[in-house]
Design a binder for these strands. Structure first.
Length: 165
DNA sequence: GCCAACGTTGGC
DNA sequence: GCCAACGTTGGC
């Protein structure tokens, strides 16, 4: 029998940022921002190929005390060239990127909410429901990574937020 | 500040 | 194409 066509399961994401550089409060202030400066091919490919408008995005503070997940955003614009790679005055300028065929991609994120409390990395590591989450894997340092629906729901529950929407 | 893990670079 | 050297990330 024919399988009814069904929308693909919504994908969740997690992005890292150093709060000294750009924090959840900065995103709240700006409301939207181009997630620029990512210079890793795997992370770029997620932004270029897989992050879709409306996808939920967890915001993670790295190099913070303590490090942890601090809030939620959404993809408000899909992959497009990262202007900082083409700007010689920008610290993320990449002279090897051809302006006619830009090498680096960003998405635009829109602030959704800041959690009432930071969810510390150490606590997430201890949560049996989060086993296998890429963030928690040893030596993992991707700054853009997928989050399964189950892990996303668990994080939102820990944050005291509704599991969807 | 230390250092493990990982990605990139470049000599060969 | 191998791999050592180097630079970066990021927790601790």
């Amino acid at each position: 029998m024919p399988t009814p066509s069904r929308a693909p399961a919504p994908r969740g994401w997690l992005v890292k940022t150093e709060p000294d550089v750009y924090s959840i409060d900065d995103l709240k202030r700006d409301r939207t921002t181009g997630w620029d400066g990512v210079r890793n091919y795997q992370a770029r490919n997620f932004m270029r190929d897989e992050m879709k408008k409306g996808d939920p995005v967890l915001i993670y503070h790295s190099n913070a005390e303590p490090p942890g997940i601090v809030g939620l955003a959404t993809v408000s614009r899909e992959g497009h060239p990262d202007p900082t790679a083409l700007d010689p005055d920008d610290p993320h300028f990449d002279p090897k990127s051809d302006p006619a065929n830009p090498r680096w991609i960003q998405v635009e994120l829109r602030f959704k909410r800041k959690f009432g409390r930071l969810l510390p990395l150490a606590d997430l590591r201890d949560d049996p429901d989060l086993v296998g989450m890429p963030l928690l894997q040893r030596g993992q340092r991707l700054s853009v990574q997928p989050v399964s629906p189950a892990h996303l729901e668990r994080v939102l529950t820990l944050a005291g937020s509704p599991p969807s929407r």
